[in-house]
């Protein structure tokens, strides 16, 4: 039986800007993510999804409600050691591939996290090599980060997190600045981490084609949870998703448009193969 890894209850967060105006970035949000789950958090820019990511790693602390991550309660008065423990469990990969690599050599960057954890040298060596092999960057271990492509840099960043052996990894729009090849590379790695290593994955994104790869999607809009369910369930509501500024897969969109014109279908698939099957059935029945 899967245990909950992240538990949010009536979680809220309020920003206060320089002029003293406050904005509610998250409003009374409640959800649970189980250990080993792969969840996508989908929302447009400014929906509050990145705030959520920052709370999970104690970059921000809740203004209201409660948040528990890996058994640690996240709050403003946590001791430095408690914060350290949370960050050891929850790794984070950020958006800009240039701004998260610290060292001048790939393998030294991957070693940065384990070094901070005070892990013995021989074990760091092993972890670094394993992590680089996992993301397929082992042959680039001696390279300088600025010579790599965006996708490669992100893979190094992922290796840096894997080497710390966290239980959960949060991808905070980690594909937003990549080209399609880089995005595919990163997505393949996310899937692999979840499938092969059982790492809990929270992938924050505004690309619906990435969100459909998750087991579950939480749609965030205006600081609230708008939908929470399997990709198929979530994308069922084409009209609603459009209203909150999100796309739906083109196959699903087409079926929806047709049903609006009176051509009804019994199912709401999101992949083109099943969409084609339904349309062909309809066409066959009509003849």
């Amino acid at each position: 039986m899967a245990e909950p890894f992240i538990i949010a209850e009536n979680l809220s967060y309020t920003y206060t800007d320089d002029e003293g105006d406050s904005t509610e970035a998250l409003k009374n949000v409640s959800f649970t993510v189980n250990s080993g789950e792969y969840v996508a958090v989908l929302g447009h820019n400014g929906s509050g999804k990145s705030t959520l990511a920052k709370l999970l790693n104690v970059i921000l602390t809740p203004s209201g409600g409660s948040l528990t991550v890996g058994g640690h309660k996240i709050h403003a008065d946590m001791s430095e050691d408690d914060v350290f423990e949370v960050r050891r469990d929850v790794g984070m990969v950020f958006q800009n591939p240039d701004n998260q690599l610290v060292a001048t050599i790939v393998e030294e960057d991957v070693a940065f996290g384990p070094e901070n954890l005070g892990i013995p040298r021989d074990e760091i060596r092993m972890r670094v090599d394993d992590a680089l092999k996992t993301v397929g960057m082992y042959e680039h271990r001696g390279a300088q980060p600025h010579r790599l492509s965006g996708g490669q840099k992100q893979r190094v960043a992922i290796a840096g997190v894997i080497a710390m052996m966290p239980k959960c990894i949060v991808f905070d729009e980690s594909t937003a600045m990549l080209d399609p090849r880089g995005r595919a590379e990163v997505m393949a790695n996310i899937r692999k981490l979840n499938d092969d290593f059982g790492i809990t994955v929270l992938h924050i994104t505004h690309y619906m084609d990435e969100a459909v790869m998750a087991d579950r999607i939480i749609v965030v809009n205006d600081g609230e949870i708008y939908r929470d369910g399997t990709p198929k369930e979530v994308f069922c509501d084409v009209e609603g998703l459009r209203r909150v500024g999100l796309d739906v897969p083109q196959g699903r969109e087409l079926l929806y448009e047709l049903s609006e014109c009176g051509i009804e279908f019994d199912d709401n698939p999101i992949d083109i193969e099943n969409c084609a099957k339904l349309i062909l059935e309809k066409f066959g029945a009509q003849k």
Partner: peptide, 27 residues
């Protein structure tokens, strides 16, 4: 400045707390 900010957060998230208690990959 933005880069510096991002990098500082990224380093903290990777459990950086200064030189104390750190080991090193290379000697």
């Amino acid at each position: 400045f933005k880069r510096a900010d991002d990098l500082a957060i990224a380093m903290e998230c990777r459990c950086y707390r200064g030189g104390e208690g750190r080991t090193k990959l290379k000697q």
